[in-house]
Each structure stands twice: as C-alpha cells, then as structure tokens.
Design a protein around this nucleic acid. Structure first.
Lengths: 340, 340
DNA sequence: AGTAAAATCGAAATCGTTTTCGGTAAAATC
DNA sequence: GATTTTACCGAAAACGATTTCGATTTTACT
C-alpha cells in the first residue's frame, strides 16, 4: 500500500538507486537494456516521484502563489481563470489566497507563501495597503513577484496594468459624444491608483471638451457596491436634476444607478446616460444593457503569468532580471445605456 | 542571502542541530536557558523552517487540492471563497484546478494533485464525467476525498449536496401557488444527477397539484447559458402560447428568458412567471428581479472543507473513516418575476 | 598483447528537518 | 559515599530523490 520508491525498483531489479534514477531521467550512462527494464517496471508499479523529496533536492516547488482582494468578483475570477489554466499547461500549480482588502491579511499571506517556498508570487494589491514592507521582503528574498491591476509604482518589480487614466478619459468622452452636457462621476476609494487615474481621465476629458468640472457631482464609493450606485443616483436625481450623464467606477455601481432610475421612471439613456467599467457579463444582460469599458481580465492573467514564469526561469539561472511594465488596451463597449 | 537553517543556528550557538530543533518545538529535554537562546537567535535571523524538508519528514504538505468545473461562476466562486478562507485559518493552503467540464482534464488533474501529494481533495464533478476510475484511484491511495454539489452516488466517500429534487419541487410549487397553470421546464444536461433530480422534483410537483406533465415543454440546455434561456423562451412564445410559467435550471437561463420576454413586451409576471435556480447576485438586480432557489455556495464550501479536514486527521491517525453525506437546505427566494 | 577510449554502474554526499536512543553530568536518595 | 534518579544534550538514522565522481568493465585501436 505504501508508495513506490526508487529503492523498491532498484531492489527488485538488483541494481542501485542511482541507476534507476538516471534511467528514468534518460541519462547517457545507462545502457539501453537496463533503461527499458527500469522504465517498464516503473510503469508497471505506477511509480510517481515523491515531490517532497524532489522539492528538497531541486529547491523548487513548481508552485506559484496568487493573492487577490476577492475571488467572488467577475474581473478577478477571470484573471484567476487564465492564470490557473496557463500555469497548469506550463507545469505549475497555483495556490490562491484572498486578502479581503486587508493589509494585515496580505502580510500574513505573503509570509505563508514565502514559508511554503513558492517559486513566484502574482498579486493584486488590496485597496487598503499602504505599507509595502512585506512586498519588499519578497523582492529581497529573491522570489519573483509580478503585480497586476492594483499595483504600486513604488515597487521595483514587473507589472501588468491597464491605462486607467486613458480608459477614464474614453468613458467620459463617450458620454460627451453621446450628448451629455453635465457628467457626474461615482468614483472609487481615494487610495488605489486605478481609482485616482480614472478620476483624472474623467477630469481631463471634461477639460478637453470645455465642460466645467464640478466637485459636488463627484461621489466617492467606499465599497464599490450596487447600493452605493443606487444611493448616489438618488442623490443626483433629487439634488442635481441637471446632470445628464454618469461615469461609474465599476459596472456594479453603474447597475445600481440603472436600477434606481428604472425604479423612479427616469429614462435611460434619454434623460441620463450611464457608463460603467469592467464589462462584467451582468452589464450585458440588464435592461437597458450597460455601456462600459472592457477590462481584459483573462489577458491580464495570461500576461502576468507569462512574465512571472520568465522571471522564475531567469532567477533560477542566476541571470539578472529585467522588470517590465505592460499596459493592456481597453475599449469602449457601446450599449443601450448611452445614446450614441 | 541563502536561507537560514537549523544548522546555522546550531553552529552560531555551538550546539547541535538536534537541540535547536527541539528547542524550537518546545521539547521537555532542553534547558530553559538554551531554549530562549535558540528562540532569540531564530527570531533575530528570521528563521523559517524549510517546508520541503518538513514535508518530506512528516509526509504531509498541509495543502489540499480543489477541482471545480469552472471558476468564473457565481456559485463556484462562492464555494472557493469559503474553502480558501477556512482552509487558511486551519493552516492549509489550497491548490485550485478547473476541469472545464472535461473528463480527460479531470483525470490529469487528479494525477497531478496525487503526484503533488496533497493531503486531501475537494471536488465537484464535471458534467461529462462518466468513468470514475480516477476517483477510485484517489480513494485507493488513501487520500481523503470529499465531493460537493456535482457528485456521484457510486463513489464511496463523503459528500455535501443540496436536495435537488425537493428544491426543484419547491420551485415548481412556488410557480403553481402564484397561479401558473402550465409550467415549462428548461432543464440542464441529461447526465448530471442534480439536473435529473431537479427535473424529477418538477415532475412530482406537477403530479401533486394535478397538472399534466407535458414533455414537449421540457427543453434541455446543453451549456446552461443565457442564450439557451433566450432561445427556449422564444420557442415557448411562438409555439406554446398557453405556457404561463417557467422553471429554469439556473438563474443564467432564467435571465435569458427574462431578457427575451422583456424584448417582445410579454409582461412578467403577469403573463408568465419565471423562477431560476442558485440565487446569483445578478438575479437580484435585473428587472424584474428574478425569483429563485437559494443554493448555499458558501455553506457548502465551508462544510465540505470541514469534512475533509476531519478525514485528513482521521487518516493520519490511522483511524477508520466514517463517510457521511450532508444535505444542505435550500429556500425559495420570492422576487418580482413571480406573482405570489 | 597492450594500451587507450568508451560504456556502464554505484557509493556516497546532499537537501534540511525530525525523532529515537544512548550517553553524560548534575541532583537527589539512601 | 554509593547509588539512583533527573536533566540535558547529541550522534545518527531516517524521509526519497539527485548528482558528482570514481571504479569497473567492455570495446577499439595500435
């Protein structure tokens, strides 16, 4: 019942463990005869190398760590989808952890992954992460690290992102071109760079098209939720009747706004245009369907993994690694919540 | 730069590796003096035990494997959410793999996890899995296995499920009680037990309420998609005008139907009542909001993990394990797509 | 036949930790 | 003072695979 080991094969064949090992790894100094004998017996016994022993010897686990803020999230689950699929094809397994937007948990999880000696770490920062010491530790330990989506510019590692500012610009421009004259913004939390950049893009577009920026119609979503979208839509409807366009930080927020306006009978997009962000599946099936910015989650996961594997390989060879930042394109998805 | 080992600590302190190891594990036969000396130095050097070596010695990896059909899926991502969160708290890490509904991939992934020597496996079967040899192999290898949601009754292991038949009954009954007289069913694929049971529950409810079962208004969704819901709704609308209720195998299918009827101006729930299954978030935000059956994903993940950890512990002790099947309750969520 | 080259094998060290089992020294007991 | 107990420590053997390096055998070549 115990697992088959090299030793057992060696004994059964009357040869040494060394030769068995070499035969299985197709070394040149093993005769074809013994080679086939070993291979046949190994197959017959269904030999599987003990990966604990292999890990110890080779000092690599063929495992990578992945930390994301939350998994029940259309964008992130798409990223995860790409990563685990591609990783498996390259012979890597993925350990997934979620930080739940907590810096403290993030710290612990980094320590966990480091102690498990994963070959590399892929990660999207929590919104509340301010101190970056735990990430610097990863870099100091010489463990390859690739950040995606929620990144920090202060970290010296490879990154995969979208251009949030230009995406925010595009979203706002789309509303303007579809006839909106006074555009509100339901922005994200104040800390994350992505949220800041989308806001900056929004502002820039207003400037370029000579629309007055008005901070009283910029609302901050702390949790980026349906309810906040609903709540701020109500605020717009009661206190800012002249607003005729909304750029929401996320589809979920946008859908909250759509739900409110549907409820009170405000016509979308006739009376008010709405655009979201991310292109969740959900956005395509509500009515009216929500215009949005497509954020390529699958591509991002794929690219991040590719970069990480490259760095793992380089590190193993002892080569100096060249960090790079990849910017993935986004595009405007026009649907029925904007009247283009 | 190299990692700190017991040996280094031992040398620096002029004692043996054995004593260092024992000191850190708080053995009784180490004097308090050397104990504190070791602990202090270990902390100072930030010693982390090499988990490869620990794994090899203890023959356990403190890692479990999780295989699901797909991760970009509200129900499954909720299950995953629960599992990785609870596992982390219990000192276990989770390796996630997705079978993409392919039996072949599932086989490979089981082999992978087995070769990585995970301490246990959690899994939801692919819809296309017919041969169960790979799962029997897991059991033969004495690796604890817990199946959830998509299970097979032929496998001798613990299981966590919902009562699909009674849930299907409840859904259908709810339509009947809200006034529907002719109820169609958009069922799932023919193979998976869950899909069969929901259909059986549907049939039973019709019988109990003296409604005629009519196989011409039972449609089979192969991929359980939005498009299928849309397509079959159209079919109902054009070929079965007298149908006034639909029980959809999943919210996604239900939402497809809602979208179609919205488009052609059929009033929900006045002209037709619709109920879905799973209680995706999406179902609550479309209009009209979709009545559904709540399928407790988080609970299921939590319970499955708990069972698995219990079996892992028992196996380690060499105890005989008592397999059990847990049935989690579902409930009807009444919303605006049914006129109760 | 004698030597050089090639082919084939295995002993042993190593990875870092855990744990058993003896051994020595100090303290307690008679 | 002799003996037993207790406290403390370390050598060594695992765990299973990999790899270096030397040894032996066989073949090839003068």
């Amino acid at each position: 019942m115990g697992e088959v080991t090299l030793k057992q094969i060696a004994e059964e064949l009357g040869i040494s463990v060394t030769t068995v090992s070499k035969a299985l790894k197709n070394y040149a100094d093993v005769s074809p005869k013994t080679k086939t004998a070993v291979i046949n017996l190994a197959n017959k016994l269904n030999y599987q190398p003990n990966s604990f022993a292999v890990n110890l010897r080779t000092k690599e686990s063929k495992t990578i760590g992945l930390i994301i803020p939350e998994i029940v999230h259309h964008f992130f689950s798409n990223v995860v989808n790409a990563i685990i699929e591609k990783a498996e094809k390259k012979g890597y397994l993925v350990i997934i952890l979620q930080s739940n937007e907590s810096e403290e948990l993030e710290k612990k999880q980094i320590d966990l992954l480091l102690s498990k000696r994963v070959d590399g770490i892929l990660m999207s920062l929590s919104n509340n992460t301010k101190n970056l010491d735990h990430l610097k530790k990863v870099i100091e330990h010489n463990v390859p690290l690739v950040l995606f989506d929620k990144i920090s510019k202060l970290l010296d590692c490879s990154k995969v992102v979208i251009d949030d500012k230009s995406a925010g610009y595009d979203a706002t421009e789309h509303l303007i071109k579809s006839g909106c004259k006074k555009i509100a913004h339901f922005r994200g939390p104040l800390n994350p760079q992505g949220s800041i950049d989308r806001f900056l893009g929004y502002k820039k577009a207003l400037e370029d098209y000579n629309l007055k920026f008005d901070s009283s119609i910029v609302f901050t979503c702390e949790k980026v939720s349906f309810n906040e979208g609903y709540k701020f839509a109500k605020k717009i409807h009661t206190e800012h009747k002249d607003v005729d366009g909304i750029f929401a930080i996320t589809d979920l927020v946008g859908i909250g706004a759509v739900a409110y306006f549907n409820e009170v009978g405000v016509k979308i997009p006739k009376q008010i245009g709405i655009i979201g962000f991310s292109n969740w599946f959900m956005a395509s099936v509500i009515s009216p369907s929500l215009s949005t910015i497509d954020q390529p989650g699958f591509e991002m996961g794929k690219k991040s993994l590719k970069l990480l594997l490259k760095e793992i390989k380089a590190t193993k060879k002892g080569n100096q690694i060249q960090h790079q930042t990849v910017v993935l394109p986004t595009k405007v998805i026009k649907r029925n919540s904007t009247a283009f």
